[in-house]
Amino acid sequence: MDSFRVMRQDDNGNRFLLAKDLDRTAAEALAAQYEARGHKQLYWVEADGPARMVVGAALLHGGRVLAARRSEPAELAGYWEFPGGKAEPGESEEQALERELAEELGVKARALHPLPGRWSVRPGLHLRIWAAELLHGEPQPLQGHSELRWVGPDELDRLAWLDHDREVLPHVAALLARG
């Protein structure tokens, strides 16, 4: 049987464990009780266990990095990101990144190393951006993107990036500066 926990986040972004080792029904009922009390904090239920990783690629080629413009979901459409996706169970971050780039862009690439930082996308889901190099193929917007653009270090700040991706731009600029 899966085990769930109830979490709380206060107005300052601090996260607290309220209960653990509950079945889903009990965890959801407890979270609903806290919410019904009218507290302004955020409450949620998540499965016990490690967070799932989302990997993004700062895909480097010819002194530029690939930016991908989201076409879905609606709330993210039009924003730019480093392409990638969720790691599957048992898959390393490197394997996930290389698989996602093949699926989303139709290219063969190699994951090089993670860039500093890790961001919570939502409870139980974390993002890490990796430096990667293009080995073969011309990227195409096959899944989830409406446009791709190779950008240089002086163009990075000109795009409307998703917040998590924007935070890694100084590290991407440093990669590009090293050539």
Score class of each variant (00 low, 15 high):
residue 40 K to S: 15
residue 35 E to D: 13
residue 79 Y to M: 13
residue 47 A to V: 07
residue 32 A to K: 13
residue 28 E to V: 01
residue 30 L to Q: 06
residue 60 L to F: 02
residue 44 W to S: 07
residue 50 P to H: 04
residue 60 L to Y: 09
residue 34 Y to R: 10
residue 22 L to W: 06
residue 27 A to F: 00
residue 61 H to C: 10
residue 64 R to L: 05
residue 18 L to Q: 05
residue 79 Y to P: 01
residue 37 R to G: 14
residue 68 A to F: 04
residue 45 V to R: 03
residue 22 L to F: 05
residue 54 V to P: 12
residue 28 E to P: 09
residue 20 K to H: 12
residue 61 H to R: 10
residue 65 V to H: 05
residue 29 A to K: 01
residue 64 R to S: 02
residue 55 V to E: 00
residue 21 D to C: 08
residue 20 K to T: 10
residue 42 L to Q: 14
residue 59 L to V: 09
residue 37 R to D: 10
residue 79 Y to C: 11
residue 45 V to E: 03
residue 44 W to C: 01
residue 26 A to D: 05
residue 73 P to I: 08
residue 75 E to A: 15
residue 67 A to H: 00
residue 40 K to H: 14
residue 76 L to G: 07
residue 35 E to S: 15
residue 21 D to W: 00
residue 71 S to E: 09
residue 62 G to Y: 02
residue 40 K to I: 14
residue 41 Q to C: 15
residue 42 L to E: 13
residue 48 D to Y: 11
residue 69 R to W: 12
residue 76 L to H: 00
residue 72 E to V: 13
residue 68 A to N: 00
residue 56 G to S: 05
residue 61 H to K: 04
residue 71 S to L: 06
residue 56 G to W: 03
residue 19 A to S: 09
residue 69 R to Y: 11
residue 21 D to S: 11
residue 75 E to Y: 15
residue 42 L to R: 15
residue 25 T to Y: 10
residue 50 P to F: 00
residue 27 A to V: 08
residue 28 E to R: 01
residue 59 L to E: 05
residue 59 L to R: 03
residue 38 G to T: 09
residue 63 G to F: 04
residue 25 T to F: 12
residue 78 G to P: 09
residue 24 R to S: 02
residue 18 L to N: 05
residue 45 V to C: 03
residue 18 L to A: 04
residue 66 L to H: 04
residue 27 A to R: 01
residue 55 V to Q: 02
residue 55 V to D: 02
residue 32 A to W: 12
residue 50 P to V: 07
residue 63 G to P: 01
residue 48 D to V: 13
residue 75 E to Q: 15
residue 36 A to Q: 12
residue 75 E to K: 15
residue 18 L to H: 05
residue 22 L to S: 07
residue 24 R to Q: 08
residue 57 A to Y: 11
residue 35 E to H: 14
residue 19 A to K: 10
residue 29 A to H: 07
residue 52 R to C: 12
residue 71 S to M: 08
residue 45 V to P: 03
residue 45 V to N: 00
residue 40 K to W: 14
residue 18 L to I: 11
residue 42 L to G: 08
residue 66 L to N: 01
residue 30 L to G: 03
residue 23 D to I: 03
residue 66 L to D: 00
residue 70 R to Y: 12
residue 28 E to N: 04
residue 20 K to P: 02
residue 46 E to G: 06
residue 62 G to D: 04
residue 56 G to L: 03
residue 58 A to F: 02
residue 22 L to G: 10
residue 47 A to C: 08
residue 56 G to R: 02
residue 54 V to Y: 15
residue 52 R to Y: 12
residue 34 Y to D: 06
residue 34 Y to W: 11
residue 39 H to A: 14
residue 31 A to W: 11
residue 23 D to T: 00
residue 37 R to L: 14
residue 63 G to T: 01
residue 65 V to N: 00
residue 50 P to M: 02
residue 60 L to K: 09
residue 22 L to E: 03
residue 41 Q to I: 12
residue 45 V to W: 09
residue 64 R to D: 05
residue 63 G to I: 04
residue 78 G to M: 06
residue 61 H to L: 05
residue 27 A to S: 06
residue 64 R to E: 07
residue 73 P to H: 06
residue 40 K to L: 15
residue 77 A to L: 02
residue 74 A to T: 09
residue 47 A to I: 06
residue 32 A to M: 01
residue 70 R to S: 03
residue 56 G to H: 08
residue 41 Q to H: 15
residue 56 G to I: 03
residue 64 R to Q: 11
